[in-house]
Simulated scan of single mutants.
Amino acid sequence: MKLNLNIQPLSSWLNVTHQPLVISGPCSAETEEQLLATARLLKATGKVSVLRAGIWKPRTRPGEFEGIGSIGLEWLNKAKAETGLPIAVEVANAKHVKEALAAGVDILWIGARSTVNPFTVQEIADALEGHDVPVMIKNPINPDLSLWVGALERINRAGITKIAAIHRGFSSFEKTAFRNQPMWDLAISLKTLIPDLPILNDPSHICGSRELLPFIAQKALDLDMQGLMIEAHIDPSVAWTDAAQQVTPAALSEMIDGFVLRKAESKNPEFTDKLAVMREKIDQIDDQIFQKLGERMKIVEQIGEFKRDNDVTILQVSRWDEILQKRTAYGSVLKLEKDFTAKILELIHSESIRKQTAIMNATKAELG
């Protein structure tokens, strides 16, 4: 199922003179000197299309630096006048929207902490009524595709057609190398649902450390995301917020030079023909996989009936443990990652439990 939103192509509202599209600037506007100096260096790279900076900073706990406030809009306008770069800021309520629009900010974005709250998004949407300004919407903190889609719909219904999504990863209790889990599948699901929607990637907030940025940024480009938002600071070591994930403009320039830009499609007939043949093979194998899954579930139902008739519980932990160990070992022999195999088995097992539960709970009338 596709969702039809009234969205203008990115190229119609953003003049991208460099590939890939890069939106960059400090996490926070700290001082006028810091912001202007960073903006000058970013402009000098010749690789940045939009200057960003946090003016109002929604912090997790009170007492931390919560942004310089409205004065930062004046600094941004000075940077815009000097460099010619359009400017972008985050807005989290109607007051922010009003002030940013009055200051002539070119692009607004809604942060993850705001996207998670439909009341906040609606307040922003109401404040945007009657304005023709681009709005970028970051994914919510938690992995909820419906919340992300809902925010896009609310902004679109306010009459905003210059819309893009920003994939910045999702919060997780699990400790990994990343600050926020990429969960690429959710961004892919969003693109599948709204094919015309431009999606950018924010590797800074996914990584949380500058060392990982090139890896995540390259993967985003390989997944056909249309640009990157990367935080840059004239001296990240003294940044007031998120110092570890910011890079210098020089480091950003070097990183961009290292990106491999690939095409979404090829016009080479030989490539197209060979790809079609390989995809046909995949389709045939997929058909076989689903056929076998269907056969497996029929046996699962028979087992459920047998357990019901003999008053045996649905779950036998020892049997599940046996399946998990044997199949993951077999998967490893077939060069399948252990986590991948385990996820597939868990999905199949969950559906098996669901089917057998339905059989166990069926009434005598339903059984005939």
Score class of each variant (00 low, 15 high):
residue 1 M to H: 11
residue 7 I to E: 01
residue 10 L to R: 08
residue 12 S to T: 15
residue 24 S to E: 08
residue 29 A to E: 09
residue 30 E to S: 04
residue 32 E to H: 07
residue 32 E to L: 04
residue 33 E to G: 02
residue 35 L to T: 05
residue 43 K to C: 07
residue 47 K to D: 13
residue 51 L to K: 07
residue 52 R to L: 04
residue 55 I to H: 04
residue 59 R to D: 14
residue 61 R to K: 15
residue 68 I to N: 08
residue 68 I to T: 09
residue 73 L to E: 06
residue 76 L to V: 06
residue 77 N to C: 02
residue 77 N to E: 09
residue 80 K to N: 09
residue 83 T to E: 07
residue 84 G to V: 05
residue 88 A to R: 14
residue 90 E to L: 10
residue 95 K to V: 15
residue 99 E to R: 15
residue 100 A to P: 11
residue 107 I to E: 12
residue 110 I to G: 12
residue 118 P to I: 08
residue 123 E to P: 00
residue 124 I to P: 05
residue 124 I to T: 05
residue 128 L to R: 09
residue 129 E to Y: 06
residue 139 N to F: 15
residue 144 D to L: 11
residue 151 A to Q: 08
residue 153 E to S: 05
residue 156 N to M: 12
residue 157 R to F: 06
residue 157 R to H: 14
residue 162 K to M: 03
residue 162 K to Y: 02
residue 168 R to I: 01
residue 169 G to H: 12
residue 177 A to C: 02
residue 177 A to I: 12
residue 178 F to Q: 04
residue 193 L to N: 06
residue 211 E to G: 06
residue 214 P to C: 02
residue 217 A to K: 07
residue 223 L to N: 10
residue 225 M to H: 10
residue 238 V to G: 00
residue 239 A to S: 12
residue 240 W to Y: 14
residue 241 T to F: 12
residue 246 Q to H: 08
residue 250 A to P: 08
residue 253 S to G: 15
residue 258 G to W: 05
residue 258 G to V: 03
residue 259 F to K: 03
residue 260 V to C: 03
residue 262 R to M: 06
residue 265 E to W: 07
residue 269 P to V: 00
residue 271 F to T: 00
residue 275 L to P: 00
residue 276 A to E: 06
residue 283 D to V: 02
residue 290 F to T: 07
residue 293 L to N: 01
residue 295 E to D: 14
residue 295 E to C: 06
residue 296 R to T: 10
residue 301 E to F: 02
residue 310 N to V: 00
residue 315 L to E: 09
residue 317 V to L: 06
residue 322 E to I: 03
residue 326 K to A: 09
residue 336 L to P: 04
residue 341 T to N: 05
residue 343 K to T: 13
residue 343 K to P: 01
residue 346 E to H: 08
residue 346 E to D: 10
residue 357 T to E: 09
residue 362 A to S: 13
residue 365 A to C: 01
residue 367 L to T: 05
